[in-house]
Amino acid sequence: MIALRGLHKAFGGRPVLAGVDLEVSRGEVLFVIGTSGVGKSVTIKHLVGLLRVDAGEIWLDGARIDALPERAYAAIRRRVAMVFQSSTLFDSMTIAENVALPLRKHGRLRMAEALADARRRLVEVGLGEFADRWPAELSDGMRKRAAIARALTLDPEVVLFDEPTTGLDPINARRVDRLIRALADERGVTAIVVSHDLASIFSTADRIAFLYQGGVRMCGTPAEVQASADPVVQQFITGRSSGPMETPGF
């Protein structure tokens, strides 16, 4: 469904991605893993046009999308939703208003209808009683779930998650994992998850892509990754500080 071919991206002359190839099929949960700063978030931001490729191709359902003008991305962003690491709820709106915003803008619903729909969706993620709170009043885990509810309002085919469990306590993290799994299993939503949380990687992923030094070092099922003989992959999944992996700054 989604294909990245030879993706290159540099920031200020420093190459971050140097030829990333990746295929994602419909309805699967793909985890993109790797150390901090390796370009995981950068990779997925290209899929919705928040970043533009230096070289390479991005295909979505047989159509090439990497060279589209900004306006044409609106249609893609309705099909491919994104949940940011920092949740990015709008400070000036209540939780319900946040979720209602895309409904109001794209669903052409009136404010009252959009708010009613938003409340229903917040109940689904267990935030029914917090609908009228401000984002600043909620915990990180609640904000994350509200952001997921907002991303799902337009019934997207693909959802991109940028480190959905980073900064959450284990209970909230597993709750988010279950939410992602349920999306794929019950609604057939394709999920691409950027993460370095080992517990969620091995409990949730259908397939794992391991990013290292600007490219995909290995791609396979959790079992394949665990059985991998590659010392770099082994070092990452066992979390040893010494090994062949080069981490910047150490």
Binding site: V48, L50, A74, R77, M82, Q85, L89, F90, K105
Partner: peptide, 13 residues
């Protein structure tokens, strides 16, 4: 705080 990116990701200009 990436809220502008968040807006764009919701296909809102």
């Amino acid at each position: 705080t990436d809220q502008i990116d968040g807006l764009q990701a919701l296909a809102i200009d």
